[in-house]
């Protein structure tokens, strides 16, 4: 990669951002209400009137979880690019390049390590904005790395899932991420460390049929679409309209498929509470328990990981 390919994407995304004024106002998909983007950001991307949970990019998500909005990025291994030499209406390598330019990320999953109410945690976030959050080799490797990091550092692993499913352009190698991520979950389980899944809108396909449904605790955000097959495929199969609320977070909870539906404003304290209980850590001090409003500061993202801190011992020790 030369300096031009490094600079041009950044430059164009910078220019694009300035040239698109409609980005300033965001429409609520449910009510049509218009919200100023700063207000939306300040409200953790929940539409103030309707309570609709908009998508959150990985950086905003990590900022909303970690103490003081600060964390360390976990370095993710490089994977083979387009081993299938896949081409549909467009070459896969070009689609990948576009997605990287658009998001500024290498692939759909970002992993951070930091503190949640003082407790060290490892958190992975899947970005629906990157090719529909699809699970390919890079995302699979990122999740495996995240789980292994959590296991070796003795922290809980929190997975914010969001995906349309497998990355079809990687064919069978994308399917193999289902057992591969499950292998890493088993390692975490053997280390007796908690695995908490937060299902966000939407999570479907091979992602729900693997790591996104194997949490010790399954949480979903309100209204999130969660399922194996997409609603359109099911309608085509059964040739009927689907009932109201089908495959939504609340429906899954009522059918015994998930533990909790948690509003985004309550996510951080809920996660902290569950992690503390599962890690048998003492209760947090009153002050830290309060939900922290997201800050405007840039997170301090260090290039390398610090030496592991004195992590609390796993519950089994």
């Amino acid at each position: 990669m030369n300096w031009i390919s490094n600079v041009v994407p950044k430059l164009s995304s910078f220019l694009n951002r300035r040239e698109v004024p409609e980005n300033l106002w965001v429409k609520c998909p449910e009510t049509g209400q218009m919200v100023f983007h700063k207000d939306l950001e300040a409200n953790l991307h929940v539409v103030p009137g309707s309570g609709y949970h908009m998508r959150m990019d990985p950086t905003a998500r990590l900022r909303s979880v970690f103490d003081g909005g600060k964390w360390y990025d976990i370095g993710l291994p490089a994977v083979a690019i387009d081993p299938l030499k896949f081409r549909d209406e467009k070459r896969y390598v070009d689609r990948l390049k576009d997605a990287r330019t658009k998001t500024g990320a290498q692939d759909a999953v970002k992993v951070g390590y930091g503190k949640l109410e003082g407790l060290p945690v490892t958190v992975a976030v899947q970005d629906f904005g990157f090719m529909g959050g699809s699970l390919g080799m890079a995302a699979g490797e990122a999740i495996v790395t995240g789980l292994e990091t959590a296991a070796s550092r003795g922290t809980p692993f929190i997975m914010f899932a969001s995906s349309g499913g497998a990355r079809m352009q990687e064919g069978i190698l994308s399917l193999m991420q289902m057992p591969r991520t499950t292998c890493a979950i088993q390692e975490l389980r053997e280390a007796k460390l908690p695995y908490i899944v937060v299902l966000t809108n939407p999570t479907t396909g091979g992602v729900t049929a693997s790591y996104a449904m194997l949490g010790d605790i399954q949480i979903a955000e309100p209204g999130a679409l969660i399922g194996f097959a997409g609603p359109r495929v099911i309608e085509q199969t059964i040739r009927e309209k689907l009932p109201e609320g089908f495959q939504r977070a609340e429906y899954l909870r009522d059918h015994g498929m998930i533990d909790l539906v948690v509003h985004r404003h309550q996510m951080r304290p809920t996660l902290a509470r569950l992690c503390r209980l599962l890690m048998r850590a003492p209760a947090a001090a009153g002050e830290a328990k309060a939900a922290v409003k997201p800050t405007e500061d840039k997170p301090a993202e260090a290039p390398a990981l610090p030496a592991p801190a004195a992590n609390p011992a796993p519950a089994s020790a």
Binding site: T182, A209, M213, I226, F228, A229, E240, F246, Q247, H255
Partner: peptide, 18 residues
């Protein structure tokens, strides 16, 4: 890919089987 299968947790059943 059917309604009843989704209702009873198709995704979770597959994940547990793997």
């Amino acid at each position: 890919p059917g309604l009843d299968a989704e209702e009873r947790g198709q995704a979770e059943a597959i994940a547990r089987s793997t």
